[in-house]
Write a protein that binds this DNA or RNA. Structure first.
Length: 444
RNA sequence: GGCCCUAUCGUCUAACGGUUAGGACAUUGCCUUCUCAAGGCAAGAAUCAGAGUUCGAUUCUCUGUAGGGUCACCA
């Protein structure tokens, strides 16, 4: 292959399910490779399986590709289902040249044809160079005369792929390593139709926690890209995470923008070993991205989350100041935006909206008497406008003895943000009310 | 089972044949305004095993072991 030839890679999804996260990574690596070589990315829907291919899946793939920001050149989109004349032409030629033949079959199962088209296997050794794994050699004898089409107008995957890659001028085939064992038979077909051999690069698979291939069947909804979108992960974080599975720049850098990835990515430095999909790391990364985002972006994401909760349209939420303060509190407790709605839907933060229910014993800090708690609360009541004074009081009197009753009086929770943050968001009036209420509870 | 691929902390990984085997996530401990969270600091944690080559193997070779992939008229 001449060095000056334009790089052409492909995104060839099969619309038989929601867009798979492992597929997304394969496409990402294709995308990075093409972009850094100023190449082209062709999009090809491999929908020759009429039973399993669905339009809604094709839509899901396109939609999520756009969401992730790794779009191929959609203007050259090709659907295999619309290319049967082309496949027929090649098939006919192969048969004419006796490189393939119509084979009479014994029907063993329902739906099987009594006639298919088989490839006349030259039964030789095929060696190819893989950009990631080096030399790989197969003896194709074990493949026998494999089937390449069900009929003249119904090609099987291997035939369609080879013809399409040839006609589209694909220079680099970058795919998952479950494609390795398909390679020899595809090379055989290439040689038969006189197509040049593309350069291969087989990426290691992404594995689930149980170290097996990520599959919908065994690992549920977490295999689809749309799950991450719904859960409130940012596309930039997902991309960053996907890129770091099986590849790294050899430096300590962890956070990468798309531009940086395009610049530093190196296909030949991709790991050979399959890697586990470690969602803990994705969570960490996503949080980093959330925290680094501009304020307006945080606000709009936060508002979107509110719309999904019971506080949607509530008076408090209409108050921008309250909402911003609430966001600040929740931002410390989430790794993905979806958690905002999830947290607000529990009753964990209800005290920020309504007065809490107080239990007498819980107002009192473990080292103090109820009398002392009451006394401290009353002192706080007088200096509630000045946090510094409350802190001084706490330092003199004992932090736990002042801050615990105060915080509990305000929240009615054993776990909550600190009392200063609570006073700030509740306001001094409301805070006073709640402290007085706590004092009453202590008396009775 | 045949064929193919792979093998460094729990996980993702770094290390021209010579390093106290480095970083990140996670974990644990401490600090920070009582609790929670966030943040800061610190710690523990790995070269699959056995032979060889070599003055010296994580690194090269072989064998074993383990794991994964693939063996369709699916893609």
């Amino acid at each position: 292959m001449p060095d000056n030839q334009k790089v052409i890679v492909r995104f060839p999804p099969s619309p038989t399910g929601l867009f798979h996260i492992g597929n997304a990574r394969t496409f990402l690596f294709n995308y990075l490779f093409a972009k850094q070589n100023k190449g082209q990315i062709v999009f090809r829907l491999e929908d020759t399986d009429k039973e399993r291919s669905k339009q809604e899946y094709a839509n899901d793939i396109v939609e999520n590709l756009k969401w992730l920001g790794i779009e191929p050149d959609f203007s050259t989109t090709v659907k295999q289902s619309e290319r049967s004349e082309i496949y027929t032409k090649y098939l006919q030629k192969l048969i004419n040249e006796d490189k393939a033949y119509i084979s009479k079959e014994e029907v063993k199962e329902e739906g099987q044809r009594d006639e298919v088209i088989r490839f006349r296997n030259p039964n030789k050794k095929i060696a190819f160079h893989d950009l990631i794994r080096g030399e790989i050699e197969f003896d194709t004898t074990e493949l026998h005369d494999f089937v390449i089409a069900k009929s003249l107008s119904e090609p099987i995957y291997h035939l369609a792929v080879v013809i399409d890659d040839f006609e589209m001028g694909v220079t680099h085939v970058v795919r998952g390593d479950d494609g390795i064992s398909n390679t020899p038979r595809q090379i055989l077909i290439q040689e038969a139709i006189g197509a040049p051999r593309p350069i291969y690069a087989h990426l290691p698979m992404i594995l689930a926690e149980d170290k097996t291939k990520l599959s919908k069947r065994n690992h549920g909804e977490k295999v689809s890209v749309s799950f991450y979108k719904k859960a409130g992960y940012l596309p930039e974080a997902v991309i960053n995470f996907l890129a770091m599975i099986g590849w790294n720049p050899g430096t300590d850098q962890e956070i990468f923008s798309m531009e940086e990835l395009i610049k530093t990515f190196d296909l030949t430095k991709v790991q050979k070993k399959g890697a586990l999909f470690n969602i803990e790391k994705l969570n960490w990364l996503n949080r980093e991205y959330i925290m680094r985002a501009p304020h307006e972006f945080k606000i709009s994401n936060f508002k979107n989350q509110i719309e999904k909760t019971k506080w949607k349209g509530s008076e408090k939420m209409k108050n921008e100041e309250f909402m911003t303060k609430l966001m600040k509190i929740l931002l410390d407790r989430i790794h993905r935006w979806g958690e905002v709605a999830e947290l607000l839907e529990t009753n964990e933060y209800d005290y920020l909206f309504d007065k809490p229910h107080l239990e007498k014993e819980k107002i009192v800090w473990k080292t103090q008497t109820p009398e002392n708690a009451k006394e401290n609360l009353e002192k706080v009541l007088e200096i509630i406008d000045t946090p510094d004074k409350i802190m001084s009081l706490a330092e003199e009197t004992g932090k736990g003895e002042v801050l615990w009753p105060l915080r509990y009086a305000l929240s009615g929770k054993e776990k909550s943000p600190d009392p200063f943050t609570l006073i700030d968001i509740l306001g001094t009036e409301e805070s006073r009310d709640r402290i007085k209420k706590a004092v009453e509870v202590l008396i009775n």
